[in-house]
Amino acid sequence: MEQKEDYFLRANNLAIGYDKHVLPLHENINVSVKPGQFTCLLGPNGAGKSTLIKTLCGFIKPMGGQVWYGNEKIERIPEIQRAKKISVVLTDRLDVQNLSVFELVSLGRTPYTGFFGKLLPYDIDLVHRAIEEVGLKGYALKSIDKMSDGERQKAMIAKALVQETPFIILDEPAAFLDLPAKIEIMQLLRRLSKEKNRGILLSTHDLDMALQIADKIWLMAQGKTLQEGIPEDLVLTNQFKRFFEREGIQFDNFTGSFKYHKEIQKEIILKGEGNTCDWVARALNRMGFATVAQGSNYRVEVLQDATSQFALYRSNKLVLQCNTIEALMDGVIKSFAAESKN
């Protein structure tokens, strides 16, 4: 599916910021959103993600450079035409009573309806289909103030769908959702970008999710030039490390996630296998113990015993048997403390 580059949403040497009297937040931004591509704009809070998004939508003017769609600058496109090019889902909270999902979604048809905003049968059909596509079937008449945050966000996405724009831009669409709802929204957006060939750009600070789901990632951090690439390249070229590492936080190129950097003080032998063993190792790491195969007085065994699951040995003598990792950790800490006293 080859598209003409003219119809990408393109930022050309873009400089963004709010205040003319101070330096731009970011300069030299050269990126583009393509139809059918799922892009995540990733950066810590305060990096300027919202500002970039608002500039791309045409809400605020660029401080330098341009945003192009076709052969027109985005801020030069008349409002009503722009409304047919880019739709948005913002962080603004909706606080309207008695607004049904149908009414909310049908507002997405505003650029196409006549003077009184009356919906034609085609519009009504489109609205109902969009409500189904985002997974809100049966919710059409439900009032949005009686829905969960996740459901409301889906309704906003349906609104963006019926706006029939080649691009959809979302500012932190999953910011205040719990984890399952977050994953659901992200998967929904990815699916829509593929099925409907929409170019979707969303900002997030959830690195794990972006790495797993994005076609392309834009990395943004204060005082650094915006970097773009596919997730794998960004990991392998250490871009992630450079962008996000701070004191005490380490990006693990191997697992693709962050680790809290802790000083390892003591070593301990861990015997056993399977999932349980992994979680014990994790708990031990968190307490500052490195797990080794040999070379320590201390040994933890994960048992397949009916009466107890874990056993702790010191110098091959049984210290403790227990059923929870919590009790095991207590035991480990106590016996290490006892040793250091002696």
Binding site: F59, A83, I86, S87, T110, T113, F115, F116
Partner: peptide, 19 residues
């Protein structure tokens, strides 16, 4: 009627909808 309905969503959304 139409502008008022769109304004329910707040000014940013309304602007994005071409108002």
């Amino acid at each position: 009627i139409k502008p008022l309905n769109v304004l329910l969503l707040g000014e940013n959304y309304a602007a994005n909808l071409g108002l």
